[in-house]
Design a protein around this nucleic acid. Structure first.
Lengths: 329, 329
DNA sequence: GTGAAAGCGCTAACAT
DNA sequence: ATGTTAGCGCTTTCAC
C-alpha cells in the first residue's frame, strides 16, 4: 500500500504539496499538480482514511442501531438509510440490539470509540441522559423521542384509528385488536388509537383486546383462543406479521375472510401482498422514513440548519381482499 | 473526551504505563495499576479506536457486501454474520451492491481505505483479479468461488433435483421451472439440477421453462402467460418469491393448489409459511451459512488454521400444503 | 507556490 | 517496573 510519502518522493515534492492537491486546498502550481497526479495514478495511491480520521475527527461513518434486521420491517428502512448515506459518502455500521438497552449502550460506546460521525437509533427505552452524554449527532427513528433529538416517526395513533374505522365502515361491530408488546411505544400508540376510535364508535370492550408480541405464531394461537370465547367480526392487528397469524387462525377455524371476519394489519410490508387473501394494512412510508432520518443526520453532522426537527409522517390505508366485502358477503 | 495523556497525568505516570495496563502488556506494579485504573474510571476514559487502528493496522471492523438487504433472503444472513462477528468484537459495515460490479468495486475500495480487517462478499461476478489485489481476507458467501477464497454455499444443484423429484413423487408429470436471472450463478445451478432431473425422468421439455427474474410480480405474469399455452401440473420456482407469484397466478386462473398444480419454492424464507396454502420449499440453512462464513473470516483474519475452506451445505425439502396431495386430490 | 515541522491518540521498542 | 522516544499516515500551521 502506497503512502503519501511514496507519492511525494516519486513526484519530487513535499508531502504537504501532495496533500494540497488531494484536498484541493491551498495553492499549487499546475505543472507540479500534474506531476503529483501522475505519481498518484502510477502508485494507485488511495489516502488512508484512518489517518485522516484521526486528524480530522470525522470518519465518514455512521452507526445504525436497529432491534433486529431480520424483522421484515427493518430491511427497507436500513436500505433507505444506506442509500442516502451513500450519496453523501458515508458508510454505515449496522448493529442489532434486540431491544436490549444493555446491547444498545455497548454498541453506542463502541461506535463512539470508532469516531462515527453520528448515529441513527431505532430503539425504545433509550436513556436520554446516556445518549446526551455521548455528545454525538443522533437521530431517533421509528420511535418517539422527547424533543432532545431530531426524530422521524409515522402517525401510529392516527393509523390505528384509520384501521379501526375502516373495519367499522365495512360493517364490523365486534372489532378485536391484537396488541403488540407493551414495552414498545409504537404498539401502545396503536392501541390507544384503536381504543379511542372504538370508544367514539361506542363499541369499546376490554374483552376484545388480544395480547400479541408482534410475532406470527403467538398471534395465531392467541386468536385461536380468543375466537373460542368471543364473537368477533373484525380484527385489527398491531402489525402485519400478527395479521398473518390472525388470518391463519381464522382460516383454520373454517371461517371466511373477509366475509365472516375481516382483517387488517399494520406496517405495509411486502408480505401483505403475498397472502391469500391479500391483506389490507396501514402502510407506513418505510423507505421515506429511513431516507428522511438519514438526511436529518447528515445535516446535523455537517452543522447545517435544520428547518424541521420532528417528522410525523402520514400513513395510508391500503384496502385489499382481507377487508373487501363488496361484491361478496 | 479524555485521552491517554489525561489519564497518565492524573495517575502521575507515563502514558506508556497506562497503555500497559490497558493492553495487559508488560509488567506494571500492582500499586500503580490500581492508581491508573482509578484514573481511567474517574475520567471515564475509553481508548480511541482510530488511533489504535492507525498504529495496529487492524480496525476490528469488517465489510459486508450484499446485493440488497431488502431482498428477504438476506436479512437473516446478515443477522447471523453480525451475531458471530459481535462475539469476536468485530463490527460490520453493510453495503448494498445491487449486483452491480461497479458499486462493489467502489465499496471494496472504500472499505479497504478504512482498514477493514476483512470482507464477506455475496456477489456473482467478482473480478477475482481485482479482489486478489486488495490483499485483504475475503470470504465468498452464497456464490461459488473459484478456489481463490474460502466460500460457503448451499447445494443448489442437489436442491433443485430434490424439488423436481418431489413434484414427480406426488404425481406431477408436466413440471415447469421458473428460472432466476441468467447472470446469477445460483439460479443457473438450480436450473441445471432441474434439467438433469427432468432428463433422467424422461420428462424434459424446453417448453416447460419459464423465465423469471427472482421477483414475485414478474413471475406471476410469466406463469399466467405460460399456463395459457402449456399444460402444467407442477411448478418448481427458482426462489420463494417467484413461488408466491406462481401461486397467485394459478389461483387467479381458478386452479387449485396442489390438486391441479403443485408448487414448490426455493430458499426457505419465513414468507413461505405465511401464504395460503403454505408453500413447500427447499430450505437453505441461511443462518448457518452466515455464521460459518463469519467464523471463516475471523479465522482468516486472525491467521488461524482453517481445516475446511469450502462449504457446500445441505439443503432440505420442506413439505407443506402446496405439494401435499395426500388425503386430497 | 512550496517545504519543514508539529501533532491527531495511540503503541512498542529501547533505555534506565 | 517505568519513562522516553519514535512513528502509524495524514493535515495544517508557519516559514520562506
Amino acid at each position: 500500500m502506497a503512502t503519501i510519502r511514496d507519492v511525494a518522493k516519486l513526484a519530487g515534492v513535499s508531502v504537504a504539496t501532495v496533500s494540497r492537491v488531494l484536498n484541493q486546498n491551498g495553492y499549487v502550481n499546475e505543472e507540479t499538480e500534474k506531476r503529483v497526479r501522475k505519481a498518484i495514478e502510477k502508485l494507485n495511491y488511495k489516502p488512508n482514511e484512518v489517518a485522516r480520521t484521526l486528524f480530522k475527527k470525522t470518519s465518514k461513518t455512521i452507526g445504525l442501531i436497529v432491534p433486529d434486521i431480520s424483522n421484515p420491517f427493518f430491511p427497507e428502512l436500513v436500505r433507505a438509510i444506506e442509500d442516502v448515506m451513500n450519496i453523501y459518502d458515508y458508510t454505515v455500521i449496522l448493529c442489532n440490539s434486540d431491544e436490549k438497552s444493555e446491547k444498545e449502550k455497548q454498541y453506542m460506546d463502541v461506535l463512539k470509540q470508532k469516531y462515527v460521525d453520528g448515529m441513527i437509533l431505532t430503539t425504545n427505552q433509550l436513556a436520554i441522559e446516556e445518549v446526551m452524554e455521548l455528545d454525538i449527532p443522533i437521530v431517533v427513528l421509528d420511535r418517539p423521542s422527547d424533543h432532545s433529538f431530531p426524530s422521524v416517526i409515522a402517525d401510529n395513533y392516527h393509523g390505528a384509528r384509520l384501521a379501526t374505522r375502516h373495519l367499522y365502515g365495512i360493517g364490523c361491530r365486534k372489532i378485536a385488536h391484537i396488541q403488540g408488546p407493551a414495552h414498545v411505544v409504537n404498539a401502545m400508540q396503536r392501541f390507544y388509537g384503536y381504543r379511542d376510535e372504538m370508544k367514539s364508535l361506542g363499541l369499546w370492550e376490554e374483552a376484545l383486546i388480544i395480547q400479541g408480541n408482534y410475532q406470527l405464531r403467538q398471534a395465531k394461537e392467541a386468536v385461536l383462543q380468543a375466537l373460542q370465547t368471543n364473537q368477533v367480526d373484525g380484527i385489527f392487528a398491531g402489525n402485519d406479521a400478527m395479521a398473518v397469524g390472525a388470518l391463519k387462525a381464522v382460516q383454520q377455524l373454517g371461517l371466511r375472510v373477509p366475509e365472516d371476519v375481516a382483517i387488517i394489519g399494520y406496517d405495509g410490508i411486502p408480505l401483505t401482498e403475498m397472502t391469500t387473501p391479500e391483506l389490507s394494512t396501514i402502510s407506513q412510508p418505510i423507505y421515506e422514513m429511513g431516507a428522511i432520518a438519514a438526511r436529518l443526520l447528515v445535516k446535523k453532522i455537517e452543522g447545517q440548519f435544520i428547518e424541521q426537527l420532528h417528522y410525523v409522517l402520514p400513513v395510508t390505508l391500503i384496502e385489499r381482499e382481507s377487508t373487501n366485502r363488496r361484491g361478496k358477503s
